[in-house]
Amino acid sequence: MTIFAGFALAVVALGNGNSNTSAASGDAAPRPQSTVQYPIRFDDSPPPRIVQPRPTVSYPVLFPEAEGAR
């Protein structure tokens, strides 16, 4: 158990080291620049039209009426 604790302590100590080479010269680490322009706008095309369902048969479909429905 002591060996495990020593190993964990070594990992934490080595993992928290400052590995930034530019920190010694006082320079800040470069940050990525944003390429997004807000507000986001899409093409000025109209929204897609919703296709209305069309009947697949040319004759009326008659359903039997349930008794007592009237």
Results as ranks from 00 to 15, higher is better:
Phe42Thr: 12
Ser45Asp: 11
Val36Cys: 02
Leu62Trp: 08
Pro47Thr: 07
Gly26His: 05
Ala5Val: 14
Asn18Tyr: 09
Ile3Pro: 03
Pro47Met: 03
Ser19Tyr: 15
Ala29Val: 12
Ala24Ile: 11
Val61Gln: 04
Ser34Trp: 05
Gly17Asn: 13
Val51Gln: 11
Arg54Lys: 02
Ala5Arg: 14
Asn16Ser: 15
Asn16Glu: 14
Tyr59Pro: 01
Arg49Phe: 06
Leu62Thr: 06
Ala8Thr: 10
Val61Thr: 06
Arg31Gly: 14
Val51Leu: 12
Met1Pro: 08
Ser25His: 03
Val12Ala: 15
Ala5Gly: 10
Leu62Ile: 12
Leu62Val: 13
Gln33Asn: 10
Pro46Met: 11
Arg70Asn: 14
Pro30Gly: 02
Gly6Trp: 12
Asn20Ala: 14
Ser25Ala: 13
Pro53Cys: 02
Val12Met: 12
Phe63Lys: 11
Gly15Phe: 03
Tyr59Arg: 12
Pro60Ala: 09
Ser25Leu: 05
Ala69Leu: 08
Ala23Asn: 10
Ala28Thr: 11
Met1Ser: 13
Pro48Thr: 00
Pro53Trp: 07
Phe42Asn: 07
Phe7Met: 15
Asn18Ser: 12
Thr21Gly: 00
Glu67Gln: 11
Pro53Tyr: 05
Glu65Lys: 12
Pro32His: 00
Ala23Leu: 10
Gly6Ala: 15
Asn16Met: 15
Pro60Thr: 00
Gly26Trp: 02
Phe4Met: 12
Val11Arg: 04
Leu14Cys: 13
Arg41Gln: 12
Pro32Gln: 04
Phe4Ala: 15
Pro39Leu: 08
Pro30Met: 10
Phe7Arg: 11
Phe63Leu: 15
Pro60Asp: 05
Gln33Trp: 01
Thr21Glu: 08
Gly17Leu: 15
Arg70Glu: 15
Gly15Pro: 01
Val51Ala: 05
Phe42Glu: 12
Gly6Cys: 14
Ala23Pro: 00
Ala23His: 06
Phe42His: 12
Ala66Val: 09
Pro53Lys: 02
Val57Met: 03
Ile50Gln: 01
Ile3Trp: 07
Asp27Leu: 14
Leu62Gln: 00
Pro30His: 03
Arg41Ala: 05
Phe63Ile: 15
